[in-house]
Simulated scan of single mutants.
Amino acid sequence: MSSEADETQGQVLGVVFGVIALVIALVIGVVVHHTGKQRAAKAAAVSTAPVAMADASGASVVVENGVVKFYFATGKADLAAGANDALATIVTGTASGQKALVSGFHDATGDAALNAELAKQRAFAVRDALVALVALGVAADSIELKKPEETLATGSNDQARRVEVSLQ
């Protein structure tokens, strides 16, 4: 009888240890899942915070609330360093089916026709940067250009010389 009791006791202990191992695995799984959600929430919070990058030419790029704003040096259409990094949120949006709206703006100083043409060249530069990211999921037909607008009395001319990219 003692060998039967030992065998039964061994089976019970095996089941108990199995249940304990299962509970531990479940707890670890829940902790890992919860930690992943917290990291995703932190990443989302970081992506909505304003991020600015500038270079020596005076050109800069700012990402704020999902809108990418490119600021340009006077008379230039060169993108600031970090343009591709700043466009990451737009790339993600277009990959999910949204359209990228590229809007050019210009200041009120100088010749209006030249300003409008320069704003158009700037918008094309931003569009071309997006199209260059085709490998990351941006198709040319997911980009819409909006006619350049003149910015009047809303701040400095530096702020007026910009292109904004947003998702629709």
Rank of each mutant, 00 (worst) to 15 (best):
V15P: 04
I28S: 11
L13P: 06
V32T: 13
A56W: 10
N157P: 11
D111Q: 01
I143L: 01
G58D: 03
A83H: 02
A83N: 05
A95K: 05
N84T: 10
Y71S: 07
L145E: 07
P50R: 07
L152K: 07
V32Q: 13
F70L: 00
L114I: 12
K99G: 08
K76C: 04
A43H: 11
T74L: 10
V138G: 05
A81G: 07
L101A: 04
V126H: 03
I28H: 15
V134A: 08
T92C: 03
I90G: 00
A132G: 15
R39Q: 15
M53I: 10
A132S: 14
F70Q: 01
A95P: 09
V126G: 03
T48V: 05
I90S: 00
V46H: 03
F72Q: 01
G36R: 15
V30D: 15
A77Q: 08
D55W: 10
G110C: 06
F105P: 08
A44N: 12
A112M: 11
T89I: 09
G29S: 14
V68Y: 02
T154V: 11
V46T: 09
T109Y: 11
D85Q: 12
R39W: 15
N65F: 05
K69I: 07
V51S: 05
A95L: 11
K99T: 11
K69C: 04
L79F: 06
V51K: 05
A56D: 15
N65S: 06
A129N: 04
A52L: 13
L118G: 04
V15A: 00
G66D: 01
T154I: 13
Q121S: 14
L22E: 03
T151E: 09
V67L: 02
V31E: 15
Y71G: 01
L13V: 10
L118V: 08
G58H: 06
D111T: 00
H33N: 15
G75D: 10
A80N: 06
L114F: 11
L145S: 08
I90L: 02
T74W: 08
L13G: 00
K37V: 13
K146P: 05
M53N: 01
T94V: 09
A25G: 07
S103P: 09
A54D: 13
N157R: 13
L152S: 07
D55G: 04
V46F: 00
V27G: 03
E117M: 13
N84F: 06
A80G: 04
V19G: 00
A95Y: 08
F17M: 09
Q98L: 14
V67T: 05
A21T: 06
L26E: 13
A113F: 11
G75Y: 05
A81F: 08
A112R: 12
L118C: 01
L13A: 01
A119E: 09
V134P: 11
F72V: 03
I143G: 05
G110Q: 03
A135Q: 10
